[in-house]
Design a protein around this nucleic acid. Structure first.
Length: 365
RNA sequence: GUUCGGAUAGUGUAGUGGCCUAUCAUGGAGCCCUGUCGAGGCUCCGACUCGGGUUCAAAUCCCGGUCCGAACGCCA
């Protein structure tokens, strides 16, 4: 449309165009798959089937502009703290950590898998003298989970840093989270307004709750009878999250001092008490956001840990070799980008913050 | 994977055996009105997830399939 733009008190936006010409660029079919004006809600499933229309709604659009701001501020923050961005393979020969199921694919004539985490590769880089690295990329999990907070393809923000322990990287993590919140508040206020969100920046430092304290909270506040060594289930996470929130008014906190047995093989056992590992989870009141640890940097110890978790060290040669020629002590973490966004914006479903989510039932669009 | 719940116009919904040739909103088509609003008024259009069963009678009850949601499990 061409014409003169005039200010007008009566126009909803404060201005209007007095047209002198209209040129039809392309016609739209009718009816539309859903309403874009906010008069009639559409269910998530309907919206995802027609993302191209859904994205025309200001609220949906705002989410993805904020997502950009989150990733942009993560890159800026980590870069300015001497981390360099890396890209590691998503097509891999073996399971990363053994725990979760992987998607098998055909790679020419052999079987390969989609990677569940850049973990092993970023550790290899530590041996190569790339002292501080980060990666933002897709991870794939073949778990048949069916919840509001799981995806089969997610975006992971990962760091690894040499000459650091778990406390050092926890500090980087909480600083980064705080920085992301500030950046979004500063640069995406229009989008936050569109979503009706008054963003509160989490207070630092985040509470550090010991695993054994977390267990006590659950046992005191519920019917559950957890014993040392048990993993924390969903309802336990909620009980702990609510307890922390009531006491501190904060949604973010760390759980530290996890039993070595329930953490991945590469987590460093505590020197004074090997039953406990130098690992942590970053929790939000509603769910787990990140996990990290100081890593084992001794070849022999690592090889033994792989074996004791029922895995075959031979299939980890490509990884273990990096520990034989001078691996510095190092630590790192990985945080789910979608969970970070979801908890920040308070969306009901993680699929709300992914353009084209992949879950157990959805492979298209 | 387990348990529970659901599926009605393009979209979101009402309807728990006969009053359903199925409600309302939004949308579309048309007419009227109108400096502004999600403009308004009127007319019309458009749907019971699929298959089987019960019954004189099924959107409604029963069985199975498909799809969807929630909690849990698993995990980030």
């Amino acid at each position: 449309m061409t014409g003169n733009v005039k200010t007008s008190d009566k126009a909803p936006n404060g201005f209007e165009i007095i047209p002198s010409g209209i040129n039809l660029l392309n016609e739209a079919d009718s009816p539309l798959p859903m309403d874009t004006t906010g008069k009639v809600e559409a269910e998530l499933d309907t919206r995802l089937d027609s993302r191209f229309i859904d994205l025309r709604k200001p609220g949906t659009n705002a989410i993805f502009r904020i997502r950009h701001e989150v990733l942009n501020s993560v890159r800026k923050y980590l870069s300015s703290n001497n981390f360099i961005e890396t890209s590691t393979p998503k097509v891999v020969a073996t399971a990363t950590e053994g725990g979760t199921s992987l998607f098998p694919i055909t790679y020419f004539t052999t079987e390969a898998f989609l990677n569940q985490s850049p973990q092993l590769f970023k550790q290899i880089l530590m041996s190569g003298g790339m002292d501080r690295v980060f990666e933002i990329g897709p991870i794939f999990r073949a778990e048949e989970h069916d919840t509001r907070r799981h995806l089969n393809e997610a975006t992971s923000i990962d760091i690894e840093s040499s000459f650091c322990d778990h406390f050092d990287v926890m500090e980087i993590l909480e600083n980064m989270i705080s920085n992301v919140y500030s950046s979004v508040k500063q640069n995406s206020q229009k989008q936050l307004d569109e979503l009706g969100i008054d963003l509160e920046i989490p207070e630092k430092p985040f509470l550090k709750l010991k695993y054994e304290e977390a267990i006590d909270i659950v046992n005191q506040n519920s019917e559950e009878e957890l014993v040392w060594g048990d993993d924390l289930g969903t309802s336990a996470e909620h009980i702990i999250g609510n307890d922390v929130f009531e006491r501190t008014g904060q949604s973010h906190y760390f759980i530290i001092d996890w039993p070595t047995e329930i953490k991945p093989f590469y987590a460093m056992p505590d020197e004074n008490n090997p039953e406990i590992s130098k690992s942590f989870d970053l929790m939000h009141r509603t769910m787990e956001l990140a996990s990290g640890a100081q890593r084992i940097h001794h070849h022999t110890m690592l090889s033994e840990r792989i074996e004791s978790q029922g895995l075959n060290p031979d299939s980890f040669d490509f990884y273990l070799d990096a520990f034989r020629f001078g691996m510095p002590p190092h630590a790192g973490w990985g945080i789910g980008c979608e969970r970070l966004l979801m908890t920040m914006l308070g969306t009901e479903n993680i699929r709300d913050v992914v353009l084209f989510p992949r879950d157990r039932r959805r492979l298209s669009p």
